[in-house]
Design a protein around this nucleic acid. Sequence first.
DNA 1: TTTACTTAGTGTATTAATTACAATATATAC
DNA 2: GTATATATTGTAATTAATACACTAAGTAAA
Lengths: 228, 228
Amino acid sequence: MAKKSEQIIKNLSTDSVIFGFDNSELKVLLIKLAVEPQKGEWALPGSNILTDENLDVAAKRVLKELTGLDNVYMEQLYTFGDVLRFPLFRVVTVAYFALVKIEDYQPEPGPKASDAKWFPIKKLPKLPFDHIEIINYALKRLKQRVRIRPIGFELLPMKFTLSQLQNLYETIMDVEMDKRNFRKKIIGMNLLIPLEKQKGVPHRAAKLYRFDKRKYDSLKEKGFNFEI
Amino acid sequence: MAKKSEQIIKNLSTDSVIFGFDNSELKVLLIKLAVEPQKGEWALPGSNILTDENLDVAAKRVLKELTGLDNVYMEQLYTFGDVLRFPLFRVVTVAYFALVKIEDYQPEPGPKASDAKWFPIKKLPKLPFDHIEIINYALKRLKQRVRIRPIGFELLPMKFTLSQLQNLYETIMDVEMDKRNFRKKIIGMNLLIPLEKQKGVPHRAAKLYRFDKRKYDSLKEKGFNFEI
DNA sequence: TTTACTTAGTGTATTAATTACAATATATAC
DNA sequence: GTATATATTGTAATTAATACACTAAGTAAA
């Protein structure tokens, strides 16, 4: 019998939409389920919630078990609870969305999944339950968030070029932007620290930047605006 | 024994933050609990979720039972699930927030509450559990929503003056606005239908307006922006 | 070493949106 | 008819957003 600290709440789970960006496409991390009745199907990583475990702790635990990553951007998304969303019995799931630096993590399946893989958001496999609905909702939220808060950096490597950043925004928001205007705006926010130049590229080397989280936190407190 | 359709999920509840506006103050509807152990305390209206009941249906049911109102603006807010939020055992609550036209409803307690009352948001009584946290979160959300989507109308009578509307915005967002600029912007949105004049006021009578929901829905589809 | 190729980097003029600001109009009450 | 209270309206100044094209710097190939 499981010890007390491992008792699960039968009717409650968490599922996470984990986004990554590989410089050309937005991707979602899915796992291949290892247990019946959905064995073999790709699905969102998720888990039941333990009786003595906070919701966000559960979501972070799943991410950690699956990817070995912690300290990633994560926020609660929405709670999906349709009576029929899970076919066997009633399960309400608290969905989270996470942003990870894709190059920090090349998937290796955890113990509960037989495989884990990044899928382009535009080429998702068939998903069980309401997982596609959850992903669509997460994507909508990501688009909103990225427009009003500088969270895009969470998807890029620590050091990135302005072109990479623009490319990220264009991909997520599905628009084209003017290079000069984009740079004007981003630089004007004063959240980037210029670093050395790129090396080993077969053309003019771009300057690298990193996100100034410290300054962001202090500006945020003062009620600044970060709309793109 | 309860029939099957009335089985509750022990670990899951819903709580609603119901906002009203009485032309000078923002208010929240609270109920006085009628059962131990919190008997006599004011709290957010809430209920367990039934096994065969969707989350939003549960939230609407509670509102209906409490106020007799349906067809009110309601959206899921956030899910609060701290292990210790409820002292007796683990209860995760899916919080909703609702906007009601305060004059449509003067509180009468439902069967499960010994009293129901509007409280000014700035003069709330002591609340049990994490209810104050939920209200603060709802207020934050309301401020965001009102800025980017025309939902303020949900808090006003069907017919309202521009001064009332401005007053509402000023109260919620806690800023002062210029009358001419406010009117310019609101009228420019083309979401108001002008009606007849006010009657029986001891000064120049203002023109009444109503919200054009039909036009709003069609503009929304076209991706319009409604920032104030 | 020259040329082709590729991406990086930069400024200005135009237009649109936001802000600041004050006098006149209309209703009732006394 | 005078006092009182709120409603209504426009314009100029400032700021923000947009549109737009050429030069620079690096590697690769001829």
